[in-house]
Write a protein that binds this DNA or RNA. Structure first.
Lengths: 190, 190, 190, 190
DNA sequence: TATGAATGAGAGTTCATTCAT
DNA sequence: GATGAATGAACTCTCATTCAT
């Protein structure tokens, strides 16, 4: 288990800020050094190299995001409130963590993605999958792979949040309800 | 109007290939020079600098993509075949143009996006918008902004195509039909 | 004899302007092309290369400057009015031709100077030298080489003009008279 | 206060040599790297960029030159020996430091000059000014601004030295005395 | 004469990374 | 653990010059 120190934390935070703002190709190690107030050398104590740092950051952010989708105890709710709560939590996280959202999207659309190994053992992920599978088994949701379902629901929530952050769409409660319901209808058994 | 020359074309093609493969921060001007078989200097005859080259490429690819969504004469079809055809065309384009798709996604999730000025005057865009607005006016599609509708339909198609290209999802005709129908249901008036 | 054409003139003028403003190392051929409104290729029709262009320009400016020192017919004046008039003409030229002055000074303090071959045959130069030598022979001016005398008189005039142009010295008629008289005393037989 | 290290020193020395020999526009960073035996990157640790390096070098050389004019304790001498000693020191410095002289002259006739901020706090400068002002107050030297006086005396010394270095004038003790006396007469009250 | 697209070496500068302290 | 001076390859971009038209 990677141990958490102040410096390691400062490095990761600085990297997140900078990549969200300037993108991968606009974020240099020296910028990270300046922003995180650590020495150039110490980064290589905590991370093998720049790629390793970025992948480690993604690992962390992904875990955060998955945890966020379980906020509000969807386990305790019946369908369709359960899926709706997960959807809203994903949206809320994305909107309230614009840097994490920007970083995730950049990462997943870049060649860095190939360097990343999915951590199957994450408990939150397994919980989340379990909930969905339950609702599929119960016939509420159409049978489809988890990834396709993700595209039709969470993918839409994140995409909407990105545009809200960018200011190209203004999202109020009515619109949010409208889109969430649209996503539900998209995956529900008819 | 930017005039088209062989060299300009070669530069844009090489840039597209390389960014699709190595990302922005892994694509250097010297790589573009090597791939496109032009001299280093000539790039700066056609483009102001690297950023300008990338934005010009995006401009072009966007136009292409918009045109692709009008393939199959959706104007001639009634609802819902019309929207479905557009959706399928977007998906087909994305799947059959993996480099363009990768580039678009990288661009739109990077700080480059802010350098880009939307070309309002594109005729295909206006045609496309017109068709959708018609179906909204007729009551087939729920009232919502064009961008939200895009997220719920085309955004999903592209996201699906990305995963098909990456190999993380296998898309057959049945699945395609299922997802397309899901998207339609998401935006249809109930 | 180099023949004078509009384009040749435009090139020389542009070069003078640009070097006066940006110095040698800040003046590129492409800047000269832009400023003079000629094509890149034509410069190499009139001049062998950049060095040749610069030396040709110096040649020209030097001739101009020498001619300027004969303005006001010093030949017709007795000593000391004669030397004084030459001195004032040199000063006036320098002040009213700041670009030429800047260019001359840059050229003469740069390695370009070694590429330059003094044109002995210039008639104005010979006239000027003749006048000075006459006043030396008459015992008005101390015996010294033409170059040393230049340093003590014209050199001072130009140096003063440079500072007047730069704004670090404000020169009025009184000061001008004072300095001119100083220079005369410096070279006069006591 | 800028701290002095071996590498910083080596860079400045190499730059001085090269600019004296090849001029600004003939001196590249890679030449400086080669001559100073440092790595390319380290220059940018000590100096912001090429311009900053050149201005820093000028700062240094100017201080040196000013100090040199105080050699031989002119403070202890009466007029006119005092001014004469300063004049000779300026000349001696220029002749024995041809690279510094060449660099100063190039710098002061180039656009770099505008990037330079005069350091008013230099003690030697103030000492020197004090001596001159004293002799003006005593009525030995005509009232004029320091800059005009500089042109009529030190400016001439440097100009003479430049020509001596270039070989276009041969300076012996007699000539030196003659020119120095000329400069004194130029500024003395009559 | 005249053009300006094309060249490719070389410019100034930044980069990720190392290592003596 | 921690520093930051040092490296030198690689970066983006400009340069003087050429040549087919």
């Amino acid at each position: 288990m990677t141990q958490e120190t102040d410096k390691r934390r400062a490095i990761l935070n600085a990297t997140l800020d900078l990549i969200a703002e300037h993108g991968f190709h606009g974020t240099s190690m020296s910028m990270i050094v300046k922003r995180s107030q650590v020495s150039a050398g110490i980064i290589y104590h905590y991370f093998e190299n720049k790629d390793d740092l970025i992948v480690a950051l993604y690992d962390e952010v992904k875990v955060d995001f998955t945890r966020a989708m379980l906020i509000g105890a969807p386990q305790t709710l019946p369908y369709p409130d359960r899926l709706k709560r997960i959807w809203r939590s994903a949206y809320e996280y994305a909107v309230s963590h614009p840097q994490e959202t920007s970083f995730i999207e950049q990462f997943e659309n870049s060649p860095y993605l190939h360097m990343w190994k999915h951590d199957e053992s994450n408990e939150d992920t397994r919980t989340l999958y379990g909930l969905i599978e339950q609702d599929m088994a119960s016939g509420y949701i159409q049978r489809m792979s988890m990834e396709v379902l993700y595209v039709l629901t969470i993918g839409v929530a994140i995409n909407l949040a990105k545009r809200q952050i960018a200011g190209s769409v203004i999202v109020d409660e009515t619109l949010l309800e409208q889109v969430a319901m649209g996503c539900l209808r998209a995956v529900e058994s008819s």
